[in-house]
Simulated scan of single mutants.
Amino acid sequence: MKRCHIAYLACTAALVGTALGAAPAVAAHSTLVVRPGESIQKAVDAAKAGDTVLVLAGTYHESVTIRTPYVTLRGVGSGTVIEPAAKKAKKKPAGASAGKAAEKVSKKASKKPKKVAKSCAEGGNGICVLGTKTKDVKGVTVADLKVTKFSRTGVFGMATDGLTVRGVNAANNGVWGIAEERSVRSLLRDNYAHGNGDAGVFLANTIQEEAGAYDAKQTLVAHNRLEGNRIGVTVRRLRNLSVARNYVSGNCAGVFVVGDENKPKAGHLDVTANQVVANNKSCAKTERLPALKGSGIVLTGTEQTRVSRNWVAGNSGKSPLSGGIVLFKSFVGVAGTNNRVDGNVLSENSPADLVSTETGKTNSFERNSCRASKPAGLC
């Protein structure tokens, strides 16, 4: 009996040891620290899924591309500044070599140029989070830093899944503060986008081509401060998205939701509980839009979009798109359908608090607190 008992204990110990040995090891995640004078890109390239690249306070003159999933790029607040690298002056060839150099340039010019994908820096962007045509990059976070003075975009995401941009100060970039295309399940939260040439926050299905609306899969744009841009938030040809609890002021237009004749149609999204105040900056017309001034929330060519519980005040202008909440038939002639404007508080907007130039009768205006509408009877 004693021998059997000892054998039983030995077998049990062996089984326990085997079970423990089979348990998977927990992956250790690293924090890679970047100090002034060091390269952020080198640290990002060295990072593995789950790692954090922590960028200490200082000014870094570079663009950064993230392609690895589940990487976090984080600064220590607006003291971490990312700006464009200084342009290097090209040396001119001298003497006899100049003729040969000119001949080479001439031969290259005579050939049909090949389309080469631009790098993040060549595209004029600060931070790029990039997937591919066949695979989205997942779970990347960009947080707590300032991106400024880039000729195109501060933070740009393409083909991303679960991208988080949080606590970013996107200032004075040539086109967009924070932008993304072909992306799903994004969270853009607690950012400050100001002084950008076009939209503070820009979201689209695709930028380079016309196409039907893209399912953004519950992307959320929330608690951002958007000031002094051409447009605070632009949502172009997307569905299944929320713009909520943002402060939008001092832009030419506050919130712009854009659709067109392509199918599926843009819409099936929410614009809710935002403060949209005094967007009275004046902006010249572009190829796509007339001159802008005094537009609060604009829907054009959308369907099944709900605009609710927003505070919209003091937006005043004489543009075709001016007014508090404006439903405007798209510029390609497509009417908005089944949009719902309800429970908003509006005041001192001009030419009216509620404006509709839509010809369809399926849009509804209910329980809004306002004084004037165009046409009359919408309040």
Rank of each mutant, 00 (worst) to 15 (best):
S249V: 15
T148D: 11
T141Q: 14
N173L: 14
A57R: 12
D353K: 00
S364L: 15
A101Y: 08
D342Y: 09
D215K: 05
Y247F: 12
Q208N: 13
R237D: 15
D45E: 08
E210R: 12
S308D: 04
A352V: 00
V168F: 08
T65K: 10
I82F: 05
H268M: 10
E122D: 05
N280R: 02
C379H: 00
R230E: 11
T305A: 04
T12A: 13
G377E: 07
A109C: 08
R309D: 04
N191E: 13
Q275Y: 10
A213C: 01
S322Y: 00
M158C: 14
L145N: 05
G197Q: 07
A10V: 08
V44D: 08
D270S: 07
G79T: 10
L163H: 15
G296P: 01
F328V: 01
A49T: 09
N368G: 10
G124E: 00
L73H: 03
C120P: 04
A121G: 05
Y214R: 07
K100E: 09
K329C: 01
A98V: 12
S78Y: 06
A49Q: 14
A22P: 13
N229Y: 07
K293Q: 09
T132V: 12
N344R: 03
A170Y: 05
A313S: 09
H268Y: 10
M158Q: 15
A159M: 07
T286M: 06
N349W: 00
A222E: 10
T164Y: 10
N315A: 01
N205F: 13
K2Q: 04
